[in-house]
Computed example of a mutant assay.
Amino acid sequence: MQELKDRIVREGKVLPGNIIKVDGFLNHRVDTELMDHIAQELGRHFDMSAVDVILTAEASGIALAAVVARHFGKPMIFAKKAKSDNIEGGLYQSDIFSYTYKKKVTLLVSKEWLHAGDRVLVVDDFMANGEAMRGLCDIVEKAGATLVGIGCAVEKGFQGGGDRLREAGVNLRSLAVIESAEPGSIVFREEA
């Protein structure tokens, strides 16, 4: 998606440790018009009539997932990273290692909201090593639901998480796959 790539080049920052900062438009300060364009693009790749629910992980994926859900009239669920007292009826959970926080995190989804037979599209703003996506796929499987695919705005292709998911047969569509990033130089994967 050229519009997204242009924003990454123009406004993104490459920080030490292979951190790609896109918080000025994607995951802290949110450009809702861009989010809507991303939703439209994901709708061109995925058959949204075959999707019952949008699933993401807390916290930065929530904005994009909510816009996608609203755009296509679907409910949205986000996996929490901490158990709260208001969750009833049991939990699906998956342990992942967070690249962002450099620690183990447990993703939690209430059994009240995700059911066997649900057709799930996972949506997230950013994928580094793919652990959050793997954890969300694990939760979908534990629920007996069907994974329709994963829609991701930005993927760090050089970390291999997306490629591992694709090799496992997951229908993954990332709109901007970054092959390499250094201060002043971001190179994108050519689209197939």
Rank of each mutant, 00 (worst) to 15 (best):
D36A: 14
V67R: 15
G161E: 08
F97G: 00
E11L: 14
I87R: 11
A63H: 03
G169D: 05
H45K: 12
N27K: 03
Y101E: 13
I96T: 03
R119M: 02
S49H: 11
S110M: 02
K111L: 01
H37A: 13
I38H: 10
R173Q: 11
A66D: 10
V170W: 11
A57T: 07
I19S: 03
C152R: 04
R7Y: 10
F78E: 04
K142S: 11
D163P: 00
K102S: 09
A145G: 05
D23N: 10
V123L: 05
Q40L: 14
E33A: 13
G24W: 08
I139G: 08
I96N: 10
K80R: 15
F126P: 04
E58F: 05
Q159G: 02
Y99G: 01
G24D: 11
D125R: 08
L34F: 06
L55S: 00
A57V: 13
T56E: 04
E3A: 14
Y92P: 06
V67E: 01
L108T: 00
D85A: 14
H28E: 10
Q2T: 12
L114W: 09
E167L: 05
S174M: 04
K21N: 15
L108M: 12
H28G: 02
A176M: 07
V154L: 11
F97Y: 15
V122F: 09
I139N: 09
P16F: 07
G12M: 09
L136T: 03
Q93V: 00
H45W: 13
R173K: 14
V51I: 11
S98F: 09
I139R: 08
Y92V: 06
K103P: 00
M133D: 06
N18F: 13
C137H: 12
K5E: 12
F78A: 10
V187P: 00
N129I: 05
R70G: 01
R70N: 09
V154A: 01
C137I: 15
R119Y: 02
E58N: 01
E11A: 09
A168D: 14
V9R: 14
V148Q: 12
V140T: 13
V14M: 01
S94F: 07
D23I: 05
A39P: 04
M48K: 01
G130D: 11
D138E: 14
G169L: 10
D163M: 08
F46M: 12
H115T: 01
V123C: 10
